[in-house]
Design a protein around this nucleic acid. Structure first.
Lengths: 145, 145
DNA sequence: CTTTCTGCAAAGGTTTTGCAGATTT
DNA sequence: AAATCTGCAAAACCTTTGCAGAAAG
């Protein structure tokens, strides 16, 4: 119990700092949303996913706020977003480790991977056209063999 | 003039055959939509793009029909679709040559490319996880250097 | 006290759908 | 004649926005 309390307190301080350094006021909705993103077993969440996770945790935060906050977090660099082909935009914490995604077409499960060689080849392709890469999206749609 | 007429007639036969072999009835809206996709200088078109191109050509075909037809064409394998990060879904003719895309973040221009080595590495990554690739999406967002 | 935030409800933009009449086969 | 298609208008989605009161700094 004791350790649990300390953990939560540390968490909140940690999140408050993240918010402050992003130039955002520290509010309950923002802390709760950050918590969901940090603790959810599924790392890639849509606005709707966050809304429902909060509801299950007993926090009824309006969808409008969630959309606004997720966008602010993305602008601040706390989150990244991806548009998978199923049409939904998902957000994930920016942990500083660049990676790409495999999405299981049967279960929707998302697996992260990173391949340095693919990255290098991408830059070569852009170079060859006299272009500079500002971002990229690589998604493999997969199923169990 | 003569050759122009013959060309148009050949085109229509060609398109009718494509429709028939897709199991779709040959109707004017479908032929016109195929024509746009085959002759437009921009190969990657949204439903709205097709709608406007048709209007400019004097054909007022309802957006509902365009959405329906594009989806049917995709199901039939005549088209492929992509969701670029700007949010709009675009369609392009399936010419049988697989390729990936670079999208210019300044102009929206789409450049196609193909890199066999990247393809190979993708399969290696999936293999390593015991997965099979059913499709993939690779988009490089670029700008002039 | 000023600035920023939140919830609500309304509006926006895109895509889908039910239906009745038109067209294709 | 039967099956399929089209246009229209309405609905369904997802996301954004204006506003007024609430909270943070």
């Amino acid at each position: 119990m004791q350790t649990e309390l300390i953990k939560n307190k540390n968490d909140i301080n940690h999140q408050s700092n993240e918010l402050r350094s992003a130039g955002l006021k520290v509010t309950l909705p923002r802390i709760k949303i950050l918590e969901i993103l940090e603790h959810s077993p599924e790392r890639h969440l849509s606005a709707e996913d966050v809304f429902r996770a909060l509801l299950e945790a007993g926090d009824n935060i309006s969808l409008a706020t969630i959309y606004r906050v997720l966008t602010q977090f993305e602008d601040a660099g706390l989150l990244e977003s991806h548009n998978f082909d199923n049409g939904h935009k998902v957000f994930e914490l920016n942990r500083g480790d660049h990676h790409d995604h495999m999405v299981c077409v049967q279960t929707g499960k998302v697996i992260e991977f990173h391949n340095e060689e693919i990255e290098k080849l991408q830059h070569e392709v852009a170079d060859r056209h006299g272009l500079e890469i500002t971002g990229h999206s690589l998604v493999l749609y997969v199923k169990p063999k």
